[in-house]
Amino acid sequence: MSEDSFLSLNALTLAYGKSVAVDNLNLSIKKGELIAFLGPSGCGKSTTMRAIAGLMRPMSGTITLDGTDITRVAANRRQVGLVFQSYALFPHLSVFENVAFGLRLKRLEAGKLKQQVEEGLATVGLTEFVDRKPAELSGGQQQRVALARSLVMNPKLLLLDEPLSNLDARLRLEMRTELQRVQRETGLTMIFVTHDQGEAMSLADQIVVMNGGLIEQIGTPEDIYNRPTTRFVADFVGFENIFAVKNGQLATEQGLATLGDPIEGHPSGLAWRPGMVKMGEGQFEGEIIGSSFAGGTREYLLRSELGPINAEVDATQTIYQPGQRVNFDLPVARAAILQQVD
């Protein structure tokens, strides 16, 4: 655990009954960061979030927040906010009363309460409709209320469950900007859970990619996108040609294949995006078995001695016909170097 760690999960294991959802997870997050937990459904990201919020008791391991072990602290005393995917607004209360809910429990004096609620609503850009019920608001407005409701509590950490998934494309962009602005202005440490890599890439400072209850990779969006280190992450961010490496050679269905350039170091695997495959020249030969137009580019599926290869070529270049045999190459210099391919 590093010195400046604000939130740290230490050997955290979470289970529903006997089925382990998150296994021996270690993670440390700095103050003021915007973190994304990224992964497919069932990868343990939401479970981890619920454990941080205190809605789920870990089987083992500890959670430390701001220097205090909060593993056994009740959810209502953790000072951790959560914006639910469904927003979970109280249907019987007005917008104002929804935001005031937590403050009333703190027995805040009336004038101060009103001021803080109004500030909270202003932060999320919602100053009208304070007397309306949640059902009378649009999805985007409901989410702003949910966000304000958590923000006025001045939490140490704010969690957001799939914050953009219920919004349409236009609102998604708006809310993304909004969340970044709120984070900048408040300096709040935020973690959001998402299955959408685009969402994670555009919003987060750091991305924690999870799969099967384990962390696959932690890194900046650039790291994750350009330098995946595991087969899962590579596949997830679009490296469609993934090979294990054995004795400095590519392990293919037809045995080991030697690449033109030497493979430096001892990676477990190499991966290429379709666009990284060099078409028209090279030591390998393949037959075009599929081709599709993709706007500025054209995608090809090749059958080769290396197995199936996905290639993507600028649409202005040579167009290959199905059945045609083409030379290609996998340039080592451009490949993502994988440490784990199983």
Binding site: A53, G54, L55, A75, N76, R77, R78, V80, G81, L82, F84, S86, A88, L89, F90, P91, H92, F101, G102, L105, K106, A146, R149, S150, M153
Partner: peptide, 28 residues
């Protein structure tokens, strides 16, 4: 017809479990 996550929301805003029942379940 009532979502159960509103109780969790109430708890995270400082309410006890029992308090959440009386504050957000019962009125709804």
């Amino acid at each position: 017809n009532l979502r159960s996550d509103i109780e969790e929301a109430a708890v995270l805003l400082g309410s006890s479990r029992v308090g959440a029942f009386f504050r957000v379940v019962l009125p709804n």
